[in-house]
Each structure stands twice: as C-alpha cells, then as structure tokens.
Nucleic acid binder design. Structure first.
Lengths: 340, 340
DNA sequence: TTGTACGCGTTATCAA
DNA sequence: TTGATAACGCGTACAA
C-alpha cells in the first residue's frame, strides 16, 4: 500500500522516494543524477538504478524554482512561414534538447514590439539562455535582455561588437557576390527585387548597391522594394512590374528564393527566356531551388549550421565555458545552376 | 534602499512585494491577479495597480510547483520540414500564447519511439494539455498519455472513438475525391505516387484504392510507394520511374504537393504535356501550388483551422468546460487549376 | 564524500 | 470576502 505522503500529495515519484529506496539522502540523489563528481562511482550507479526502477523524472518546475535559472532556452525568430527559420530552429532543437533544455519558440512576425512582448514574457521563465534574430530591436527589448544577464546569441547576422555573440553570415557580401557573378557573365542592367524589407533584406540591398556602384552600373530605378510579405505570388507580380517599367533589364537579383521561384514561373509563362533574355538569381537555396525550370542559381546559406553553432555557443555560455569565437561566420556559397 | 529579503534573495519582484505595497496578503494578490471572483472589485483594481507599478511578473516555475499542472502545452508533430505542420503550429501558437500558455514543440521525425521519448520528457512538465499528431503511436506512449490524465487533442486525423478528441479531416475521402475528379475528366490509367509512408499517406492510398476499385479501374501496378522522405527531388525521380514503367498512364495522383511540384518540373523538362498527356494532382495546396507551371490542381486542407480549432478545444478541456464536438472535421476542397 | 536545514514563489486548505 | 499556514520538489549553503 502506498504511503499517503502529505496533505496535497501528488503521487509523483520524487527525489525523496529515490533516496529512500537507495538508502541515501535526497541531496545525494540529486547530485548523483546530475553527474556531480563528488558522488562515489558505485553509489551513483546504485542510485541511478533506484531512480530507473522507480521511473523517476525530475520536475522541471521544482528545479527551476530552486535554481538561479530554468532549463528553458527561448528562441525568437521573425517568421515560421519562411523555411529559413524553420531549418534553423530544427537544428537548434537537435542540439539543445539532448542537452536537457526545453526550447521555447517565439514568432515575432517581423515586428519589434511583438518581439519586445515575447522577450518580456519569456524572460519571466528565467531562461538559461536566449537566442534572437539579428540586432534590430526596440531599446526596451535590448535593455531587458542585458538587464536579465541571460546569455544571449544573435542569429543570422554577425557583428564584431565586443561582448556580443553572433552566428550568421555577411548578408551584404553575399549579395555583392551575386551581382559580381551577373556582371561576370556579361549582364549590365541588373535589377534588385525585394519584399518584406527586414534588416537582412536591406543589407542585401546595400550589398547590391555597393557592387553595382563599384562596377559603375548602379541605377536606383532598377531597385524594386516591396514592403509587403514576401511570397511566390509576390515574386511573380513584381517581375511583371519590373519588365513593364524596364524592358531592358538583362538580369534580376531576387532577394530570396520564394520571390525568385515566382519570377521564374511568371517568366516561363510569359515566354521570356531565362537566362538568355534575363538572368535570375535567388538567395538561400531553399528546397525547391534545384528543381525550378530552369534550375535556380542562388546563394546557399547553411541555416542548419547557424542553428547548430549558435546552440553550441549558447551551451558554452550557459556552462560558463570560454567561448573561443564570439562571432561565427558560416559563410555562403554561390550555387550556379541554369538561371544565371 | 532595498529591503534585503532573505538569505538567498534573488531580487525578483514577488507576490509578497505586491502584497506589501497593496496592504493585503499574498494570497489575495494571487487571487486578484488571476481574476478570482471572490476578490472585491476595487480591491482587485488596487492590487492590479500595485502590481503594475512594481512591474510584477508571475514566476511560471513557482506557479507550476504549487499547482496541479504547469502552463505548458506540449505539441508533437512528425516534421518541421513539411510546412503543413508549420502552418498548424503557427495557428496553435496564436491561440495558446494569448491564453497564457507556453507551447513546447516536439519533432518526432516520423518515429514512434522518438515520440514516446518526447512524450515522457514533456509529461514531466505536468503540461496543462497535450496535442499529438494522428493515432499511430507505441503502446507505451498511448498508456503514458492516458495515465497522465492530461487533456489531449489529436491532430490531422479524425475518429469517432468515445473519449478521444480530434481535429482534422478524412484523408481517405479526400483522396477518393481526387480520383473521382480524374475519372470525371476522362482519365482511365490513374497512378498513385507516394513517399514518406506515414499513416496519413497510407490512408490516402486507401482512398485511392477504394475509388479506383469502385470505378473498376484499380491496378496495383499503378501504385508507386517510396518509403524515403518526401521531397521535390523525390517527386521528380518518381515520376520518371512511373513513366518508364507505365508509359500509358494518363493521370497521376501525387500524394502531396512537394512530390507534385517535383513531378511537374520534370514533366516540363521532358516535354510531356500536362494535363493533355498526363494529368497531375497534388495534396495540401501548399504556398507554391498556385504558381507551378502549369498551376497545380490539388486538395486544399486548412491547416491553420485545424490548429485553431484544436487549440480552442484543448483550452476548453483544460478549463473543464464542456466540449460540444469531440471530433471536428475541417473538411477539404478540391482546387481545380490547370494540371488536371 | 555525504547529510541537515532551509529557501525558491506560488497556490490549496482551512479558518475567520 | 480575506488571511494564516502549509505544502509543491529541488538545489544551495554549510556542517559533519
């Protein structure tokens, strides 16, 4: 018969139960289960066995309450519709969960005030660590993050600012690489088409401008910046706009693969030869890029690696281990296929 | 000067701080902030003001420890690469977060043992509710879920089994609808191509068989079942296989849009006229489906609605409110575009 | 190397 | 309607 333990007894298997069975004190069980070095080898094994026998699982709430922080890691991304962030989250999960952390995902919907709210709400969990996307946030959010003293890693973009941890790539440089490629294959009137004007998009625009100016081919009229959400459909309609206004363009840098996919479809329908009449380049190398007609030339970004490296960096930060590289540049790769 | 509260004082603003400021007891603050009816109107407002002034935020860990369950809701999906589940999760988030719950996402990678592990680990949080995908799980997982007595809602598939809550659609029926459409437009040799043979895929296969048999056109040779992960690339290679083995097929039901998109691209490259020579239908109506060349005819499933309805149902279950409909069939819609 | 005492912030119980 | 008291399960500080 079960010993009714207390007024509110929940029936859960607790540290105390394991302790009783293993004939030691609760704190010893706690230490043993967490791999504390100060518990004798065979005692630890004995305790582990007892815990297994009882099916003991630590209560995260009790743990969090008794500790300076919880086992939660909060990750804030601007969107889930964009598979770039999904890939990233998947990798983060795969590193953090085995390490014993729970990942709390926040979708900011590309809105700074939304991010601020999420941050405030997640900080209440006293997370072990936080991951945020980029550097563009409200002053309040920034301050809250610093004040919380929670280890933080920034995703997607990189900076050399001291004391700031970041994993990502140089968006400007990558964009300039695209332009240089188009110039190299002889294109002269190169347009830039973007939507969802988030910081990374604007950085790519900067890279485009830089490279175009350097080649003395910059023409502001060739920039098509659309503030609404990016999508395949938007790509299709933007390319139509572009051709109407500038029938002389011989190349277009669509600022992401969704846009590019929409453009390719539309051009195919219109009977405009790609890349002969107009070359098309995308950005990110999403799943479909290798299968469009024609196959899309694009910049490959390693989102999974960003997620992995960022998670590992955060883990080190949480554990107080030294972080050799506060900034990790995962780079990018120009994948030349058929469209340019 | 701050009053140093205790030996380990954390500096956080607690219920006690608010209580002191509002000149009431901690428990009254607790009740007031949770909207307990038993707290007088103006007292509650007074307390609320004090809480705001102090910037009080409840500690989820303490709350969870003192309550029968935490504010966590665990959601288990088989994949994040498939945007079907991302759409679903986004909707779930949008309902659950404003309601004060934290969403813990688990990616089972289409593996039952993985799901079992995740479930065990998440159940340790004593979640307020759980959402799982479909009904196919290990006996242990099933039992753990029941034993936990945590309210659960099943996603994507539906059942009339008593005491089981589900929100989704009849996959078989939807698949049969596809076949019927193809038959209606005069196709006779209709193939079925699938990958990632998860339960929903197999249910669609059943629907295909049922409708083909009913039309006396069933030919097992026309089923191409590929066990590997589904992807655009796989769709491209499977359609090639199919044409090689059965040059006489005049229609193909690709069991999801990714597969269909790959097929469409490949057929375009091969110069096979769609839909004239071969009609193609997909499933799910993902973002790209309306922009393929030719535009994809497919089954539209409302993932966002599944997520919303499931979240609302779970909320009701958690609150102990009566749930009028334990099974919600969100249905589907055949979207006829150009490919069939 | 192991154990004792206590606090973490909140809610449930019971009394007023 | 409000309050005092006692858990909730675990980890830290300090002692043995």
């Amino acid at each position: 018969m079960a010993t009714s333990r207390s007024r509110r007894g929940t029936g859960r298997v607790t540290l105390a139960d394991v302790a009783k069975r293993a004939q030691v004190s609760a704190i010893t069980v706690s230490r043993a289960l967490r791999g504390h070095a100060s518990v004798k080898r065979d005692l630890a094994e004995h305790i582990q066995a007892a815990a297994n026998a009882l099916g003991y699982v630590p209560d995260p709430a009790a743990r969090a309450l008794a500790s300076p922080h919880s086992s939660v890691v909060a990750v804030l991304v601007p969107s889930l519709s964009n598979s770039v962030f999904v890939d990233l989250l998947e990798a983060v999960h795969d590193v953090l969960m085995p390490a014993g952390f729970d990942v709390l995902i926040g979708n900011t919907h590309y809105q700074r005030d939304h991010e601020e709210r999420l941050l405030r709400s997640y900080l209440a969990h006293r997370p072990a660590g936080v991951m945020v996307t980029g550097f563009d946030r409200t002053e309040k959010a920034r301050r809250a993050l610093v004040a919380s003293r929670v280890p933080a890693v920034h995703l997607m973009e990189i900076t050399t600012a001291p004391g700031v941890y970041s994993v990502g790539l140089a968006q400007e440089t990558a964009a300039a690489t695209v332009v240089d490629h188009l110039l190299a294959i002889g294109r002269k009137r190169i347009a830039f088409v973007a939507a969802q004007l988030d910081p990374r998009t604007l950085q790519r625009a900067e890279g485009y401008r830089f490279a175009m100016r350097r080649a003395q081919r910059y023409d502001p009229a060739l920039e098509l910046l659309h503030p609404e959400r990016s999508s395949i459909g938007v790509g299709a309609s933007l390319i139509r706009d572009l051709l109407q206004r500038h029938p002389d363009v011989d190349a277009v840098f669509m600022c992401n693969d969704d846009l590019a996919q929409g453009a390719l479809g539309e051009l195919l329908r219109l009977g405009v030869a790609v890349p002969q009449t107009i070359a098309v380049v995308g950005f990110n190398d999403l799943a479909g890029a290798a299968h469009t007609v024609p196959r899309l030339t694009t910049i490959r970004t390693d989102r999974a690696r960003i997620g992995r490296e960022a998670a590992q960096m955060l883990l080190a930060l949480i554990r107080g281990e030294p972080v050799s590289q506060p900034m990790v540049d995962v780079g990018y790769e120009l994948v030349i296929r058929e469209s340019a």
